[in-house]
């Protein structure tokens, strides 16, 4: 018997991941007002940030801090919203550690798919809906900033724009793989919620979300700029702002790709070792 529709046999093995992505996206879209609300109010901290840093710069007669002018500082904080929109995947660490601890992993293990492939699709769906809504609000915020304060003083070159896009992909990969790694720790430790909190704090600081990494003390730079966390926030921002010389763009991105590889390998190794210890409680 032949039918026009593709059967389960002749579908691409990747088809199942497409199904996960599309169902998850539809599911998230049901709650899109949840996102609309978040997309508007998430910018409130930026308001405080602008006035606070303005007061700081006023105190030093608007002199730049390590090459960061007042406008740079504000643009950096605004661009951070874009970078974190790619690198932060809230709930991932918790969900994975819960799946492992409570034995919920069983229901994924028996399915002919890769658990992390499933997780990537799940989170990607979330990001798609996030950006669908964000594309309605972010441009307005950026337009308003540009019209009211002329904050954007640098028009990125083609190379910077391309490197920026690449850095966002790296941001997502580093962000999600890091969550996988930490989530995997649940194979060895039963209670990791405190640890998760500490890790998220460190991420918050080392990614440059709290303070631009380049205005921190000089002796920390070497470490901060090489750390994988800098790819979750700092690098996308400074690349688009034109703070990275053109001949440095490739090396910077290269190191980012290297970190993605290292993280990927670590996740796989931990997964293999972890599964051997996995006791499938409650199964």
């Amino acid at each position: 018997m032949t039918t026009a529709a593709p059967t389960a046999q002749n579908r691409s093995p990747l088809h199942k991941y497409w199904v996960i992505l599309s169902t998850r996206t539809q599911e998230d879209m049901t709650y899109r007002f949840n996102y609309v609300f978040g997309a508007i109010f998430r910018f409130l901290p930026l308001v405080t940030m602008i006035f606070l840093w303005y007061a700081v710069y006023m105190g030093r007669n608007m002199a730049p801090i390590n090459g960061m002018s007042f406008k740079d500082m504000i643009v950096y904080n605004a661009l951070m919203y874009i970078a974190r929109g790619f690198s932060s995947v809230p709930g991932t660490m918790n969900d994975i550690s819960k799946d492992i601890k409570d034995g919920l992993l069983n229901r994924y293990l028996i399915k002919p798919m890769d658990y992390f492939g499933y997780q990537v699709m799940y989170r990607l769906a979330h990001k798609l809906v996030f950006w669908y809504i964000a594309l309605l609000t972010f441009p307005f915020v950026f337009w308003f900033m540009s019209a009211s304060g002329h904050y954007f003083t640098h028009w990125p070159t083609l190379w910077e724009a391309l490197a920026f896009l690449a850095s966002l992909v790296i941001a997502f990969c580093v962000g999600i793989q890091f969550c996988f790694m930490i989530g995997n720790l649940a194979f060895w430790f039963l209670e990791i919620s405190t640890f998760l909190f500490v890790v998220m704090m460190l991420e918050f600081f080392l990614s440059g979300q709290l303070i631009p990494l380049n205005i921190l003390p000089q002796w920390m730079h070497q470490f901060l700029f090489l750390s994988p966390f800098s790819y979750e926030g700092y690098w996308p921002c400074v690349i688009l702002m034109g703070k990275v010389p053109q001949d440095q763009l490739l090396p910077v991105l290269g190191r980012g790709v290297l970190w993605v590889g290292v993280f990927y390998a670590a996740v796989r190794v931990m997964w293999r070792m972890g599964l051997k210890r996995y006791s499938a409680v409650g199964g």
Binding site: L52, W53, Y57, I211
Partner: peptide, 9 residues
């Protein structure tokens, strides 16, 4: 960090 840059805010 902020007060490292200026004495008064």
């Amino acid at each position: 960090v902020m007060y490292g840059q200026t004495g008064q805010i």
